[in-house]
Design a protein around this nucleic acid. Structure first.
Lengths: 339, 339
DNA sequence: TGAATGATGTGAACCGGTTCACATCATCAG
DNA sequence: CTGATGATGTGAACCGGTTCACATCATTCA
């Protein structure tokens, strides 16, 4: 039905009375007089011409495909993946999304299979940022990693999260409220906004006079509920729980409910990653939010910035914003004994 | 670092002592003796050869790009988009994800821009399934739509949701519990699992002796809370709310809380789309779940099935499964007056 | 035996751009 | 006025496959 044949470069060249080569250069503004360029552009415009991305890809050697690889189980990352794909689309790039489901093996596998697909860029939300397989990706394929720098690939750029700030702010907030014993629930896999957070938390906590008990937890709500429950049964259970991820925090709510603890009365809960639902649960979750759009733009920008822009190995740091809501308060019994 | 040049078809041909043409045919099992095919395959295997998707695309005329277009605001669709992209990857297809943010104008715009991108398939989660612009997509581009059939493009396949069943089951459930007046909150835009649901609900409700009040609501939690609140202030407020989407249901929880209504005591709430958080909220949300993987597979299958598979205009219907949890119960005061 | 048939393989064109090496011409310095 | 320089434009090769039209050869049937 859509009658008109797609115009080709040759058509434009003919109309302009130029060679294919000259036309190609002119359209891209690489060569030719200003006048010629304008004329060619005008004709292209009139013809509704746009270069076939595939032919261009074949000739130029880049595919226009970017892979988004990593752990995409949780809602936050899932949203990020969609936003990334969108942002790439704006640059006329298509995306290949591969969730590796938290498994380094699958991550390695996916990376290998990507080689065949001729992607010319990878945005990673790495499951295992210290794995050596990252170095096996052909060096002309740029990698931008989000959340953690890839140790095996120092020349790749990364978008990092200012965990020190986040953890510091969180602990300070709890300390100010009068808490003395805080539980920290970190995702079991080392990848999350806040990986070295466990270590940080210990030392920062010390300096504030806080006892920080670290425990790891699955990212799923149910798994987190169990992990939280374990932390809450001890004789000297913490009066606050800092959860590195809202899903974990939701699990903590559930655990608290199951154990008959009121939030925030008996237990303060602090989340991370401000999900759409953080303000839905009752009490509304105090958490940290990110400027996701800025993160996405930074990642895509790093990937598409011209080759030599000297940002090799560059790192950008994003700082979470503290969002005080209702799930944290002063502890009812400063040093809660068992219940 | 990754030394070895990528092998080309010519390399394989040379090694096999055949022409490029014969090799190409053999590799795809289209021509040549069984013996030759096996030999060529073995060599390709040994060389670690895989055809360059770009060259293939240029020559064969299909790009290997599929666009996922539509309304992707809510978590359910966002998850679906990621799953779709994954499933496409398994077929060696890359994806272009475009969220049109609920706007038919943007939808039209995106579809037009897609023409330039040479996608060879579209998976639509249409904002406006009855819009005429769907017909403007080049007819050789296959479209599979999810949720609603595209009226302007009868030859395209669709994956539909059995709304009649869902709504019927929901209303029956509420009727059985003794409710007489039910509020229905449907997303404001006509696209959702359950678009003609409003109409259905009226007629089905009638036959069960239920009064169904229909109202539309934004998909965001906050917007839904407002919409729900409006439904709940009347003198003869409904004793149950059926929300077409869990996000809306969560909004309803919030509204109920704000109004001092207990759930399910004063108000039963029924959701749709079983999100991960449905079992987190308190009380746990009674809702309907989908077999998302089956839906995704069906859509991708329809898109990639060979041309002539006679499924043109085919429709597949998926039935939601009712998940009884704790947010619905018999009404405390069968015909609740105002509060 | 000879013609029709079908299976196997081949060279070359083609998809639609990009890029290289070179030709042409105007400009400018010496 | 001459030769070097740089800007503009050109033909052809190339990217790596697919596919068409045709050549070869072995079968099969009359």
């Amino acid at each position: 039905m859509t009658g008109a044949q797609r115009k080709t470069l040759q058509d434009i060249a003919d109309a302009a009375g130029l060679s294919k080569a000259a036309t190609s250069y002119a359209l891209r503004g690489l060569r030719g007089s200003e006048a010629t360029q304008a004329r060619v552009r005008a004709i292209a415009e009139e013809f509704g011409y746009s270069a076939d991305p595939i032919a261009r890809a074949l000739a130029s050697g880049r595919s226009g495909n970017v892979a988004i690889v990593g752990s995409l189980r949780d809602l936050w990352r899932q949203g990020l993946a969609v936003m990334l794909s969108e942002a790439l689309r704006a640059q006329e790039l298509s995306s290949i999304i591969a969730d590796v489901d938290g498994s380094p093996q699958r991550e390695e596998e996916v990376l290998r299979s990507l080689a065949a697909q001729r992607v010319d860029g990878v945005i990673a939300l790495p499951v295992d940022p210290s794995a050596s397989y990252w170095a096996d990706v052909p060096s002309q394929t740029r990698i931008v990693s989000i959340g953690d720098a890839l140790t095996a690939r120092p020349e790749s750029e990364s978008v990092l999260f200012d965990n020190e700030y986040g953890v510091g702010t969180a602990l300070q907030h709890l300390a100010d409220l009068g808490h003395r014993s805080v539980g920290l629930l970190a995702p079991s896999l080392p990848s999350t906004p806040g990986r070295p957070a466990e270590l940080l938390a210990q030392s920062l906590g010390d300096s504030m006079g806080l006892t920080v008990t670290v425990s790891s937890s699955p990212s799923s709500v149910h798994g987190a509920a169990q992990a939280a429950a374990q932390l809450l049964v001890g004789d000297r259970r913490p009066t606050a729980l800092f959860c590195l991820g809202d899903s974990i925090a939701f699990g903590a709510y559930r655990a608290a409910r199951d154990l008959g603890l009121s939030v925030p009365g008996d237990l303060s809960i602090l989340g991370f990653d401000d999900s759409e639902l953080a303000s839905l649960v009752s009490p509304e979750l105090t958490t940290f939010g990110w400027d996701e759009q800025a993160i996405v733009d930074a990642a895509v920008g790093a990937l598409t910035s011209p080759e030599g822009t000297g940002t090799a190995g560059g790192q950008m740091m994003f700082r979470p914003v503290f969002i005080a809501r209702a799930s944290t308060t002063r502890p009812s019994r400063p040093n809660a004994p068992s219940r």
